Simulated assay, not measured.
Amino acid sequence: MPAPLENLSLRAQLRVDRLPLRLGALFVGLTGFGISIAMLIRAGLGAMPWDVLQVALAERTGLTVGTFIIGVSLLVLAAWIPLRQHPGIGTLANAVWVGIAADLALAVLHAPDAPAARMALLLSGIVLNAVSSALYIGAQLGPGPRDGLMTGVNRRWGLPIGRVRLGVEVTVIALGWLLGGPIGVGTVLYAVGIGPLVQRVLPFLTIPVRRGPQPLPGAGPGVTLPTGPQ
């Protein structure tokens, strides 16, 4: 049976079991996520939905794609306030590190010339994105800014997450397209394939939350802390 995904508060995340392992999985996942963004952009066959807008903004302003990934993430986090969403360790790390990782990868990756190589880069990027998403979600240290926006709308107004996600991403793609963002077969393949791929991989990469008292680091054997939602 797959391990359940917990909704841990920030306080609970700081006390959760195997925190170093979770932090390692989180940052490997976020790094891979940023690299996968660069792979889809360099493939030149269409970017991920949010990146259609972010690439368009970068091209129009001369700033880096990573700068807009970070900037849009912070704007989305501001939208959490009326939704009464609470960020976690992973939320804040996601908002900053994915953009940095994407810029670093874009600096070393180059667009291949052969159509077959472009398609291979695209498909590899989608698979890497799915594995990376499962890693940072499975670390159970808080959702990313965009995922939290959708779950927050669902919790506040009861709208189905699928419809919220569809509405948000269609809006983002439309804005990006109007600004000249890269829409193509890659955008469609990502939108159709990423959900099933993450669902398939996530059970293998989720780090379960152990119930019961956990030892306080550096304390004696009789000093423990509780884990789980607070």
Rank of each mutant, 00 (worst) to 15 (best):
A116G: 07
G44I: 08
D113I: 00
V192I: 15
R118Y: 07
P208F: 13
G180V: 13
M119A: 15
G186K: 00
V209H: 09
G158V: 08
L216E: 13
N129T: 00
P203M: 04
L141K: 02
G176N: 09
G71E: 04
P215E: 04
A219C: 03
G44K: 02
G142E: 02
V72F: 13
Y136V: 09
P229D: 12
S73Q: 09
T187W: 00
P182C: 08
S9T: 15
R42M: 11
D103W: 05
F33C: 11
V168F: 11
G222Y: 02
T206H: 08
A219Q: 09
P145H: 08
A101C: 05
G125I: 05
R60Q: 15
G195H: 04
V153G: 14
L216G: 02
L53E: 08
R42S: 14
P20W: 01
G220P: 09
I35M: 10
Y136E: 10
P143D: 10
Q13R: 07
G218P: 06
S73P: 13
L197G: 09
Q140F: 07
G181L: 02
G195P: 01
A139H: 02
V185N: 08
R165Y: 01
P196N: 07
G46H: 04
L92K: 00
L123I: 10
P2I: 00
P196D: 12
T187Y: 01
G184S: 10
A93Q: 01
V185I: 15
G176R: 02
E59Q: 15
G181I: 03
L106Q: 01
V170I: 14
R22K: 07
P49E: 05
G228E: 05
V223W: 04
V170D: 03
G46C: 06
G29M: 03
R42F: 07
F68T: 03
Y190A: 13
A95Q: 04
P215Q: 02
P229L: 01
D103A: 00
L19C: 08
A219L: 03
G186F: 00
P215W: 00
T64I: 06
N94R: 01
G162W: 01
G142H: 03
Q13E: 15
P87T: 10
A38L: 11
F27W: 03
R84G: 11
P203G: 12
A95V: 03
R165K: 14
L14F: 14
I81P: 08
V172T: 15
G144M: 03
I70S: 06
V192F: 13
A95G: 11
G158Y: 02
R118H: 10
P160A: 14
P82N: 09
P20I: 05
L74P: 10
R15Q: 14
R210D: 15
T64A: 08
T91Y: 03
N94A: 08
M119L: 15
I126L: 10
N129E: 03
A120G: 12
A3E: 09
G99A: 06
L106T: 02
V201E: 12
I183Q: 07
G144D: 04
G29R: 02
V55S: 05
A101K: 02
G99N: 07
R146M: 09
E59V: 00
M1L: 12
I183C: 14
D51G: 05
S9L: 07
G90C: 05
P145G: 10
